[in-house]
């Protein structure tokens, strides 16, 4: 075993069962692999069925890392479903890095609004995008898991946009993949960051 480096980016995803939270965590990981990064992405399942809150985690690094635990101190929190704020409240951003943390959210209002709602430290970067509308517009279904990734990598350059699109198209071959790719690009361009 050789010495471990530490440049690990910890991402925590929130969504509901059926929204593809696990897939989102996985796609970031797969895109990272394309760039020669090391990744560990896994879900925290309960007895979830469609609609229940779900968490997933992605760790990503340029160097080999070994920790195999949940993301307690995320660098990035990514929320697929804004209705979760009503249920989980500030727990969503618990442990989020107060200095360089990033919150990416599917959210209709402004970043300031979300900042206020969660009483966020002003150092935390907030990126919001109306992922639901984009998903319905482009994909035809309110599935926001790929869309939100466009916003995530605009706000925090974890992996390259083209690699996210590549793994998404691989995961969803054909027309549906093209549509997802388009939705990701739109979110990338439309995300409002403050």
């Amino acid at each position: 075993m050789s010495e471990t480096q530490t440049d690990v980016i910890d991402i925590r995803f929130y969504g509901r069962g059926g929204q593809g939270v696990v897939t989102a965590s996985r796609l970031i990981g797969e895109a990272g692999l394309l760039q020669g990064k090391y990744v560990h992405a896994f879900p925290a399942f309960g007895p979830e069925r469609i609609g229940a809150p779900v968490q997933a985690f992605t760790r990503i690094s340029n160097n080999r890392f070994y920790e195999k635990c949940e993301v307690v101190y995320p660098d990035i929190v990514c929320v697929l479903d804004p209705t979760l704020y009503g249920i989980l409240g500030q727990a969503i951003v618990s442990g989020l890095d107060e200095e360089k943390g990033v919150l990416i959210s599917n959210y209709k209002e402004s970043p300031e609004e979300l900042r206020k709602e969660l009483k966020l430290n002003p150092n935390i970067k907030v990126g919001v995008v109306d992922a639901t509308s984009i998903a319905i517009d482009v994909i035809g279904r309110a599935i926001t898991n790929t869309v939100i990734l466009g916003a995530l990598i605009k706000a925090a350059e974890v992996v390259d946009l083209e690699n996210i699109i590549k793994v998404t198209k691989k995961r969803f071959p054909g027309e549906i993949g093209e549509k997802n790719a388009e939705a990701i690009r739109r979110a990338y361009n439309e995300v409002v960051i403050s």
Partner: peptide, 12 residues
Amino acid sequence: IDAFIISHALEG
């Protein structure tokens, strides 16, 4: 392999 932490975890 540990449930979920490895069984359902993506790695290279």
